Amino acid sequence: QGDIVVALYPYDGIHPDDLSFKKGEKMKVLEEHGEWWKAKSLLTKKEGFIPSNYVAKLN
Rank of each mutant, 00 (worst) to 15 (best):
G34I: 04
P51R: 05
L42D: 03
H33T: 10
V29M: 06
K26E: 07
D18P: 02
K40M: 14
F21C: 03
K40Q: 13
S20T: 10
E35Q: 13
S41T: 03
K40H: 08
G24D: 06
Y54S: 05
D17V: 06
G2R: 09
F49E: 03
L8G: 02
Y54Q: 05
E35F: 15
K23N: 04
L30S: 05
V29D: 01
G48I: 01
S52C: 12
G13H: 04
P16I: 09
S20D: 05
L43Q: 09
K46P: 00
K26L: 15
D3V: 14
K45Q: 14
I4R: 03
K40A: 09
A39I: 06
N59V: 13
L8M: 08
N59R: 10
V29F: 04
D18F: 14
D17L: 12
A56S: 11
I50V: 08
T44A: 03
D12R: 14
K46N: 09
D3F: 15
K46W: 05
L43Y: 10
T44C: 03
A56E: 12
K22E: 09
W36I: 11
G2P: 09
L8I: 09
Y54H: 09
Q1I: 15
Y11R: 07
G48N: 01
P10R: 13
K40S: 08
Y11M: 03
N53V: 09
A7M: 02
D12W: 12
F49T: 07
V55C: 08
S52A: 13
D12K: 14
S52Q: 11
F21N: 01
L43N: 07
I14D: 08
P16G: 08
I14W: 08
E32Q: 14
I14T: 12
G34R: 05
K40C: 12
Q1H: 12
L58N: 06
G13T: 05
T44N: 06
E31D: 09
K57I: 10
L43V: 11
W37R: 07
D17F: 12
K46G: 06
W37H: 08
E35Y: 15
E25P: 00
G48H: 01
T44G: 03
H33D: 08
Q1C: 15
F49H: 06
L58Q: 07
Y9P: 00
K26N: 07
N53S: 15
D12M: 12
A56L: 12
F49Y: 12
D17W: 15
N59C: 15
F21H: 00
P16W: 08
G48C: 02
I4N: 03
V6M: 07
V6E: 06
L30C: 07
V6A: 04
K28S: 08
V6P: 00
P10S: 15
M27R: 00
D18C: 13
L42T: 05
L30M: 09
